[in-house]
Design a protein around this nucleic acid. Sequence first.
DNA 1: CCAAAAACGATCGTATATAATCAAAAGTAA
DNA 2: TTACTTTTGATTATATACGATCGTTTTTGG
Lengths: 257, 257
Amino acid sequence: MLVGERRQKILEVVNSGRAVTVEELSRILDVSPSTVRRDLRFLQSKGLLYRTHGGAMPPVLSSYEPSLVEKESSMVEEKEAIGKYAASLIDEGDTVVIDAGTTTIHIVRNLMVNKAKIVTNFLKAALEVPHKPDIEVLLPGGNLRFSTQALVGPVAENFFEHIRVDKAFIGTNGITLEGFSTPNVLEAATKRAMVRCAEKVFVVSDSTKFGKESFIRFADIDEVDCIITDWHLPDEEVERYREAGLEVIRVKEGGTI
Amino acid sequence: MLVGERRQKILEVVNSGRAVTVEELSRILDVSPSTVRRDLRFLQSKGLLYRTHGGAMPPVLSSYEPSLVEKESSMVEEKEAIGKYAASLIDEGDTVVIDAGTTTIHIVRNLMVNKAKIVTNFLKAALEVPHKPDIEVLLPGGNLRFSTQALVGPVAENFFEHIRVDKAFIGTNGITLEGFSTPNVLEAATKRAMVRCAEKVFVVSDSTKFGKESFIRFADIDEVDCIITDWHLPDEEVERYREAGLEVIRVKEGGTI
DNA sequence: CCAAAAACGATCGTATATAATCAAAAGTAA
DNA sequence: TTACTTTTGATTATATACGATCGTTTTTGG
């Protein structure tokens, strides 16, 4: 069997959604474990699977932190509606920070203004900002996290500590009455810096994140001005956050309110 | 049998969906393995099949081979060879700067090391660095230029002024005995900062840039240690730059010297 | 926490595939 | 015919793939 053929078979097995062991692949493909390991290393370097001790699994299942591909596939309509509405809040000439995430990407895709300064630590977003003469895209420096395409670390934090912007749109993995949280320490630190550099802070998040608490808290409830979420969030939940002093906006399908 | 006819038959076999070996094709078509390899090489260069050690397979099956779709710009083979050779100059554990450009992208695609720190102002390159645990990708901040996907401006320059790296690989649009030049003012300033932060400076450029002078000069001839170019550059030209104190490396096709 | 077991990466010798080279053959044009 | 180019197959040095081994790291199960 040819090298490429074999690697293709490995991808078929792994991307069918299940995890597989080195020993198993070695048996199926009739090659030594060494060879299987070499192949897995190669495929991992291309980002096509995730290597774990003893075997491999699809990249989307790689950790408790869902990858971009997976997350983008769930709640897409809701996220798009949220992004569209959030984009409508950006005024001509504004300077705004846009966080990394599967919801925030829809903000830049729906940008309406002709003049603005967009600051983002999200490479995917930076590349999707509409090309207009008076729209400027600024990136902080930092370490690139492959899984989320976000720039993080001390360089990024330092950048945000030295700028002031009109509005920040932040994504999150968990929302409770205590605050907002995310699974990754580095990204949390960056989000914290972004929150602090903005005049007005918006959290954009679909309704499934409410009531969940992730690993690290990056903002207290009173550090955020407004939550933009979708139509599924129940009234009583909205009420609780309003009583805590936040503005809560539930967008309807299509991004209206 | 005519050449075109034979190649057509190869495509029929391969695009029927299965992988095929050189030996098998040699027998079917009744030509030598050398000829089969020549045909396969030709067909691969057209993106019509994917070559793997020992044979070939349809391009759709080789989802891990991205370079098939992008044969857009000129001097692709030369640039790839230059990039491959430049990549081989990066040692384990090095910290290197990689500039934006159509040649430099091939450096990251051919990275061989397992441990390195890659600093680049080129978003496309940052996203194509192989995912390995000890390879770190660092971006300077800055303004994003849409046309080149490069980060430029004062933020980027300031970043490079405050770091030191082992090697820098810089692209250029013009090379004369006076120095190196590029059309855009902002990018020139960034290149200048990159040149100054590196222990050893390599310029990577295909041979068509020699003798041309672009708008802004970003480095004098003595600020660069080595030029890596392709096999088309004539001997007398090489000699001129060597007399000026530069190392000039002409890579052969495939990235060897 | 520790120790046994499993999996790992690195390395090496062997086998195979490949590109580069060259000379012969076949085709082309004068 | 001759001079020239293209195509081909044989040759050879180089590159790549592979499995086995071994010392190290990670996981597991007390």
